[in-house]
Design a protein around this nucleic acid. Structure first.
Lengths: 271, 271
DNA sequence: CAAATAGTGTCTCTAAGACAATATCAC
DNA sequence: GTGATATTGTCTTAGAGACACTATTTG
């Protein structure tokens, strides 16, 4: 009979083949766009952070930020470390999106990705300093189902347009699995990861707790509504949104100024 | 400038330290218990499959079925393969529950677990043959929050009782993270995995598509209701349950027999 | 017939959607 | 004042919960 001590003296973990593990992060921001009409509120767009790959493989392609897991950290910690290193932004929240382990998904070998969706407020990105020459850029996101049933993912930054096409394989437990038809020049299987993360984010945005993280501490109810509308690609009547959100916010005695129309009261998240 | 070909000729994946990856499966079944009163319907209990560990570490402890990922498979395929190998049952559905990557969670070294919740119908388990001397056994599950705020997980098979205590660390995006206060003699961090899987299952059971997998192809509406009540630990009025479920089922012209009360029509899942 | 479950009808209450009306600012 | 957003009130509608009632079987 072998004792536990004897077991460990003979045990070597390296006798089994092991994969490399990465964390990849789909970081989302709701960006406001300047408008020419001084009376109008600024329009908002959903955008995602991509990195232009400086090394092989997929050199010069756009990819999600991410990197290899280290022995001393959890996959969540790895995700936070990598996005801070690569883009100098720190997300407020991190949502697990799935594990991508299909053999052959990475030409370097057996590499498995833990994917996360993360939320970053526009305010914190502006602080981080938007270096225009940087390899990290925010792409506007469009993701819709076409009439043919396929899903179209369009990412756009300046004059760079990436257009991927995916099909839905199955939806179970609220999570849809996609298959890549056209990677749209995104590196690896990142088109699939982005589509999955977006679907998870849209589902998550039904819950108000999620959408607060896109905004600074004090915000107007209209901007909060815009966030939810932008993410979920829907339209809500202001009266109804305000009724639903009222339990989750508390008002301050501050107001917006100089908007060219009636000032809006600033609110804070309750608790 | 290095070409992609040159890059791969120099690239060795083994230069980075790599973890071992496992898939662990929390397999749930809704079990009906025989009753002494011939008129009463049988009671139902939620149960989970555990394996008595035959080797070190945690030799003799109860653990979730699971095993190491192989290079040719996805983590989902690994989960299905392992549970079939270890318990001779094949789940109908597989729900990703999370990745457990905390350093030190496994005494053998750097081992990361991909956890799944799976659903198995009682009918398929009975076919697989319930070997009473087997290392795999179904434990009745109780999981409740105590008045002190802690969560109590009680697993019971025959005269074996495993009682773990956990605290909730945070709930984000509908997924609760737990921390183990008392592992209740479960191997590794499996108490935490079970608690997380149960929470995911309870959330999933709100969706009718999930609960069908616990039953055979033809079922009574009452048995379907019992499944949802058992998993979520709630009680529903039959009239209301029937109204809600009606869109998801189609009736057959078969009925139950010999129940000691009015026979029930058998239904099938729509589509 | 008694005990139990199967199955239906309907009232109430709540939450969501639609829409109308009023308030307030910059120019 | 004009044009825009901010904010409030209320009507309608859909769905969930509660409850009462009828139907059907076995011993």
């Amino acid at each position: 009979m072998q004792t536990e001590k004897e077991f460990f003296s003979q045990y070597s973990i390296s006798q089994y083949e092991r994969p490399s593990l990465t964390a990849d992060i789909a970081a989302f921001m709701v960006r406001s766009e300047q408008n020419d009409n001084y009376k109008r509120n600024s329009e908002t767009k959903l955008s995602i952070l991509l990195i232009n790959r400086g090394g092989h493989p997929f050199k010069g392609f756009w990819a999600l930020p991410g990197g290899f897991l280290q022995p001393s950290e959890t996959v969540e910690e790895c995700a936070l470390r990598e996005i801070t290193e690569e883009a100098n932004v720190t997300p407020v929240s991190l949502m697990p999106v799935g594990v991508f382990s299909e053999p052959g998904r990475d030409p370097r070998g057996w590499i498995i990705s833990n994917a996360f969706a993360s939320i970053i407020s526009e305010a914190s990105v502006k602080q981080g300093g938007g270096d225009d020459a940087s390899d990290a850029q925010w792409f506007d996101v469009r993701f819709e189902q076409g009439k043919d049933g396929d899903y179209y993912l369009d990412l756009c930054y300046d004059n760079i347009k990436l257009s991927a096409v995916l099909t839905a394989e199955e939806t179970r437990f609220g999570r849809t699995k996609y298959k890549i038809k056209d990677s749209g020049n995104l590196a690896f299987d990142h088109a699939k990861i982005i589509a999955t993360a977006l679907t998870a984010l849209r589902n998550g945005a039904k819950n108000f707790e999620t959408i607060f993280d896109f905004l600074p501490g004090k915000f107007t109810l209209t901007s909060l509504q815009k966030v939810q509308e932008t993410i979920m690609n829907i339209s809500i009547l202001p009266a109804n949104f305000r009724r639903k959100i009222s339990d989750y916010v508390v008002e301050t005695d501050e107001y917006t100024q100089g908007a060219g129309h009636r000032p809006a009261k600033l609110y804070m998240r309750k608790q």
